[in-house]
């Protein structure tokens, strides 16, 4: 790891001000991605600003038809949160599939979405549920937030403070896990909003990162059942292809995971 200077922020304002005073700072939440990247010297920030001890940034709250997860909440807390399990069980289930238990104690939702790994879990949930990303400057709809591989709408120094999820009528998540990295080889989140809209998002599949799957949304709108997806054809073009799976394999996984997600949603 290159030399760096560690700062622990006690408030969002302090974190923003520390960022302004540094030459090439990075925000550090759980560090389960940033630290491995720094250890490989693929990143060498002059300063790291730890957000994980900011009390206002930790917690899960349900109010009316909205579930809010503050940005520095670890995956373990989401997976075991009574509020999350009651409001959006598929989201708590998704959190329980990230990494392994030790990673889930440290990794956070804010860190995951700020990094926007094309195979990360949370981006699929945000996109399918129509969530809103709250930052210290503004609110950003999930549609606008994710902008391709490892790219988001965040400006330099902008800090994610929370994510708000509208509580859906139904939702389900199904994931084919890579057995070593535990990232999604492909995973699909399906949701039926309270107003009847069907939204389906796939992660781990597209070369452009998390994506909506319009063909499956249309099939489910006509008939909300796993079998409705049987006749859908997902084109392999634009999908990821690597030693773990070809784009054709992933195209099929999008269908199969969507079917399992619908079955799980009920």
């Amino acid at each position: 790891m290159y030399q760096t200077t560690y700062h622990r922020a006690s408030s969002v304002d302090e974190a923003a001000s520390l960022f302004g005073k540094s030459s090439e700072a990075k925000f550090l939440a759980g560090g389960q991605t940033l630290l491995p990247v720094m250890k490989q010297r693929l990143a060498g920030p002059s300063d790291v600003i730890d957000l994980s001890k900011i009390k206002d940034m930790i917690g899960v709250e349900a109010a009316g038809d909205t579930l809010t997860i503050k940005a520095a909440t670890p995956h373990y807390d989401v997976a075991t949160s009574d509020a999350a399990k009651k409001a959006i069980p598929a989201l708590a289930y998704l959190a329980s599939l990230i990494g392994d238990p030790a990673v889930r104690y440290r990794g956070t939702i804010g860190g995951s979405i700020a990094n926007n790994d094309p195979a990360a879990d949370y981006p699929a949930a945000l996109l399918a549920l129509g969530a809103t990303v709250k930052t210290n400057k503004r609110s950003i709809p999930a549609e606008d937030f994710f902008q391709g591989l490892f790219t988001t709408a965040l400006e330099d120094g902008e800090i994610i403070t929370a994510v708000s999820f509208p509580v859906p009528a139904k939702a389900g998540y199904a994931k084919m896990r890579h057995p070593a990295s535990r990232f999604a080889l492909t995973a699909v989140f399906v949701a039926q909003t309270k107003s009847g809209e069907i939204r389906v998002a796939a992660t781990g599949a597209s070369q452009s990162g998390v994506m909506r799957v319009g063909a499956i949304e249309a099939a489910l709108k006509a008939n909300w059942s796993p079998s409705a997806i049987d006749s859908v054809s997902i084109p392999a073009s634009g999908l990821l292809s690597d030693i773990h799976g070809t784009s054709e394999y992933r195209a099929n996984l999008v269908k199969v995971m969507a079917q399992r997600a619908v079955a799980a949603a009920g």
Partner: peptide, 14 residues
């Protein structure tokens, strides 16, 4: 809580 000590800065554990 069980954590991976190779994926934490010492400062984070202060």
């Amino acid at each position: 809580k069980a954590v991976k000590s190779c994926t934490m800065l010492a400062g984070q554990a202060d």
